[in-house]
Simulated assay, not measured.
Amino acid sequence: MANRAFEVARLPGFRTIALTGFVLLYLPIITLVVYSFNAGQSVAVWEGFSLDWYAKAWQNEAVKGATYRSLIIAAAASGIATTVATMAALGTTRRKAFKGQTVIYVMINQPLMVPEIVTAVALLIFFASIKVLTGYTGLWYLIIAHAAFCVPFAYLPIRARLEGMDLTLETAAGDLYASHWQTFRYVTLPLMLPGIIAGAMLAFVISLDDVVITEFVKSGGQDTLPTYMLGQMRRAITPEVNAISTVLLALTVVLLTAFFLLTRKNEK
Results as ranks from 00 to 15, higher is better:
Gly135Arg: 14
Leu112Lys: 07
Leu193Ala: 10
Met165Leu: 15
Glu170Arg: 02
Lys131Asp: 09
Val103Gln: 04
Ala97Gly: 13
Val121Arg: 02
Asp175Trp: 05
Ala128Thr: 14
Met165Trp: 06
Leu167Ala: 11
Asp210Val: 11
Thr214Met: 04
Ala200Leu: 08
Tyr155Lys: 01
Gly138Asn: 08
Val187Thr: 14
Ala172Met: 15
Gly135Pro: 05
Ser179Ile: 12
Ile130Asp: 10
Leu123Ser: 04
His146Thr: 06
Thr188Arg: 04
Gln182Ala: 08
Met165Gln: 02
Ala122Asn: 06
Leu139Cys: 06
Val103Asn: 10
Glu163Pro: 01
Phe149Ser: 03
Met165Ser: 03
Phe127Asp: 13
Gly138Met: 13
Met107Ile: 10
Asp209Ala: 01
Asp166Trp: 03
Phe216Pro: 12
Phe98Arg: 04
Ile130Met: 07
Ile144Phe: 07
Ala203Asp: 07
Ile130Leu: 10
Met165Pro: 03
His146Ser: 05
Met201Leu: 15
Trp140Val: 09
His180Tyr: 13
Phe98His: 10
Thr168Ile: 09
Tyr155Ala: 00
Leu169His: 04
Val212Gln: 07
Pro152Asp: 09
Leu193Gln: 03
Tyr136Asn: 05
Lys96His: 11
Pro194His: 02
Glu163Met: 02
Val106Cys: 08
Gly199Tyr: 02
Leu202Thr: 06
Tyr105His: 07
Leu176Met: 12
Thr93Pro: 09
Pro152Ala: 12
Gln182Lys: 08
Tyr177Thr: 15
Leu176Ala: 15
Thr102His: 14
Thr168His: 10
